[in-house]
Write a protein that binds this DNA or RNA. Structure first.
Length: 502
RNA sequence: GGCGCGUUCGUCUAGUGGUUUAGGACGCUGGCCUCUCACGCCGGUAGCACGGGUUCGAAUCCCGUACGCGCUGCCA
């Protein structure tokens, strides 16, 4: 079996689309699973749509995701350059070869003339194509005499090179995902191969580059399916072997429309039925990298069993194109959220703690010791949906409460709370070991003594040490805080709270 | 309009002629756990687009219809 070589070939026209990231991911997974090469090729042949910084941004997102190319603009390789804009002369040579072989021709029609040709058609009908039925009425090296054409070329008249699509041919090809697909040449127009600005169109460039770069499998979005016959014909003209094809299903908004960046400010205020196609938005919103990758991998693919949480490494081992679906998928934020939480909960505490330090520093919060910090992370981990929540959830572990939630005071702070809490700090002062088990025993004993529910102590203590009414299990929380802090905070609260009540 | 591709719970999907009273996950929902909020656990909800064939038997094969999407550019 020949070497697996796949490419992700985006055009730098803006932000990185969720669908684009998935295409990159599938290419990457396919290559890695089979010991192949993952190539990044920048398809920047449309100067009018070129966006400054888009390439850098694209590479940054790919690196962020861990989908690092084996060959590409950054890492180089034996098949460069990896920018199509730097390969112009290559395409030009191949286009000439086509013309010399009678497979392509020069066309001198101006954009206005083509526009006019299309406008001439009755409104009820479909716009005509530049094809066998029309080309002899246009201005090109087929309709003009050889002398006229040569004259125009010599005079430097603007021209494009068009592919001469044969009449009455059926192009059939096999797609790994869709099976056999065929098109009749009647449906295909004489595709422009070289534009008047000298740059190639996608169709020529991708065929030439895929061949020259020895691409074994083309994995891309379904929007390309309809232009495959043109590519099939080009491969035939050049006498090249075509790579295997896999056309991926599209990804849509919840309302079934195409994902668009229009009218989207943030994930918190999405227009009804819409979702943000910009990968950067999810990164900025604090989604776990692994969760994003896991989620988009499952948009159109599944491992065939019940498992649904995978790291990039794990996906590498089980991915296969054969298990990619045919039908389009809808992007669902809730499932992403679920996976985000799953990945967070499955992280090793040590690793998470290390990464959370950055979040803490950003928030300007300082902590005492590594062991203490890790203990807090361990305790709070299972309550996290997003890692950024940690800062908020853990504040009272790093500084004393400055106020007490009035709602909770009203609900939990009873007339005897102060008295019970005095008793509580007195009891815990006698404890040999200040651990969750001992603290709990202590609380239960006080409650029994007064014949009240232990909640009558638990809730006020929580309020006293944290200032709020929600949080992790109280006893574990107190153990981590330590006897000294707990005693101090409870005393503070006893002083503060009744004063506020009056 | 033409051509192409697609259609299993609200969503992601399993399913490749009998193992299926169509399975899982998210969501929603009932409960358990419990000191709160989460987590976790147990349960429920809901689907083969429609119509014809083929077959002893079809979600699975064929045809048609409907609907959706893609392409129909000197965009990719």
């Amino acid at each position: 079996m020949s070497k697996i070589r796949v490419r992700f070939a985006p055009s730098p026209t803006g932000f990185v689309h969720v669908g684009g990231l998935r295409t990159a991911l599938y290419n990457y997974l396919f290559a890695k699973k089979r010991g192949g090469t993952f190539i990044l090729r920048i398809e920047d042949t449309d100067r009018s749509r070129y966006v400054e910084g888009a390439t850098e941004n694209l590479i940054a997102v790919l690196n962020w995701a861990g989908l690092v190319p084996d060959e590409g603009p950054e890492q180089g390789g034996d098949f460069g350059p990896y920018f199509q804009s730097q390969r112009q002369n290559i395409y030009r040579d191949y286009a000439r070869e086509l013309i010399n072989g009678g497979r392509a021709y020069y066309a001198f029609d101006t954009p206005e003339e083509i526009e006019e040709m299309r406008r001439r058609a009755p409104k009820s009908e479909a716009p005509p194509k530049y094809d066998a039925s029309l080309r002899m009425q246009m201005r090109n090296s087929l309709s003009l005499s050889p002398g006229e054409s040569a004259e125009l070329l010599e005079a430097g008249a603007p021209y494009v090179i068009r592919l001469l699509i044969p009449e009455d041919r059926t192009f059939t090809f096999n797609d790994i995902i869709r099976g056999q697909v065929s098109f009749h040449s009647r449906q295909i127009d004489d595709q422009v191969l070289i534009k008047s600005d000298g740059y190639p169109t996608y169709h020529l460039a991708n065929v030439v580059d895929d061949h020259l770069m020895q691409i074994s499998h083309v994995i891309r979005g379904e929007e390309w399916l309809s232009s495959v016959p043109k590519h099939v014909y080009l491969y035939e003209c050049f006498g090249w072997k075509m790579p295997d094809l896999a056309h991926l299903p599209l990804i849509f908004n919840p309302d079934g429309t195409k994902m668009s960046k229009r009218n989207i400010q943030s994930l918190d205020e999405l227009p009804s039925g819409k979702v943000d196609p910009d990968v950067q938005t999810y990164i900025d919103s604090g989604y776990e990298k692994e969760a994003i990758l896991n989620y988009i991998a499952f948009l159109g693919w599944n491992p065939g069993d019940d498992r649904d949480v995978f790291t990039l490494r794990a996906l590498q081992n089980i991915f296969s194109l054969e298990r990619v679906n045919k039908s389009a998928a809808i992007f669902d934020l809730q499932k992403l959220n679920y996976l985000n939480q799953e990945h967070l909960h499955r992280m090793e505490t040590d690793v998470l703690a290390e990464e959370l330090k950055t979040e803490m520093q950003k928030a300007g919060i300082h902590y005492d010791a590594d062991a203490y910090f890790k203990a807090v992370v361990d305790l709070l981990k299972s309550r996290l949906h997003f890692r950024k929540e940690f800062v908020e959830y853990s504040t009272y572990f790093f500084k004393e409460p400055e106020s007490y939630d009035p709602q909770v005071v009203k609900k939990r702070w009873k007339g005897d709370s102060a008295k019970l809490l005095f008793e509580f700090i007195d009891e815990i002062s006698k404890l040999d070991r200040f651990d969750a088990g001992s603290i709990e025993k202590c609380v239960r004993q006080i409650a029994d003594r007064h014949e009240i529910g232990s909640g009558r102590i638990i809730h006020p203590v929580r309020l006293a040490v944290s200032g709020i009414g929600v949080g992790p299990g109280l006893f574990e929380m107190l153990q981590i805080l330590g006897r000294e802090k707990v005693t101090k905070r409870v005393k503070n609260a006893i002083e503060m709270i009744p004063a506020r009540q009056q």
